[in-house]
Design a protein around this nucleic acid. Structure first.
Lengths: 157, 157
DNA sequence: CCTTTGACTTCAAGTACTTGAAGTTCCTAC
DNA sequence: GTAGGAACTTCAAGTACTTGAAGTCAAAGG
């Protein structure tokens, strides 16, 4: 299926960063059989992830993000799963993931702004600047409203 | 601070809908002391949520949305929470949260780039352009390589 | 009045990770 | 080469909900 000429390898940390899941979760997924066992370095016993492993993990991450349970993922994957999907399907799923990430980036930015306003608020309190504190508090409240709205629209992942 | 004339009351289901958290989570938060005990209907024993309870829950939902742990939430809230108290501790906690979010934003951007490269890869495969596909695959690897340089690589949540 | 339906109650068990401990291996630097 | 630290390993325990069981309560229909 894969006609790759260059087979790069990745450590668990690199893989975790690229897929967007912590290394502990990658080990967990492997331990419960959601992904195939990852090959190990001959002497070290450390996991060595290949391109195919990354593809498989990205697929699993997409399924997890769309709310599929671990047990469903296991049955789905043992019934062909990732390998059975066509290129068109893969791209569709990846584009879905792209949109999710855009939303996530937006929300993180919103949360950063919120926390920064809160810090400003406490610093203003510390400096005795009640007017400034009140203004920041109002701004934070407006942002909080926005945050809750987006969170509600998110629906349990 | 709060001088409300109308104290409307809500069932747990209404409250859950307004706050955007499942009812089970509201009960859970109460059971572990993240929020104050909710008063009960005289005969039914059912929880009756007031406006103040809603305010408190909205605040907790915001903290949860920024990824704060339950134990930190409890500390934060017992230190005055939404109201005014111990500014130093509050700011310290918030600045810690700010750093977490900065790291998260960085990582989301990385994942966005990776997914975009993957989409390009599958499109190239679909178009039969092996050379372009390989080039994009290499670029994805370079992304991971670049990551090695980025020392600060803590985990979220 | 009585039954049914549905929302509520507690509590225990399950889920999907996450974290910590204790030990091994890789890498860099002297 | 060897010392030190970062990164990896497994396994056990913890976390933050979530779900299921078993029972109580309340409004609507016959």
């Amino acid at each position: 299926m894969s006609t790759r000429t260059t087979q790069h390898s990745y450590t668990i940390k690199e893989t975790a960063a690229l897929i967007g899941l912590p290394a502990s979760t990658l080990r967990y997924y492997e331990s419960i059989g959601v992904i195939a066992p990852i090959s190990r370095g001959a002497s070290s016993g450390h996991r060595v992830y290949g391109e195919d492993d990354l593809d498989q993990l990205m697929w699993v991450a997409c399924l997890a993000a769309t709310g599929m349970s671990v047990s469903d993922m296991r049955t789905y994957i043992s019934n062909g799963g990732h390998g059975a999907a066509k290129a068109r399907e893969q791209v569709e799923l990846l584009e879905q993931q792209e949109r999710r990430l855009a939303i996530e980036a937006e929300q993180v930015a919103l949360r950063q702004r919120y926390v920064q306003l809160k810090i400003g608020y406490w610093n203003a309190i510390d400096a005795g600047d009640q007017a400034h504190a009140a203004a920041l508090s109002d701004e934070a409240y407006a942002l909080a409203d926005q945050l809750k709205q987006t969170k509600r629209n998110e629906e349990r992942r």
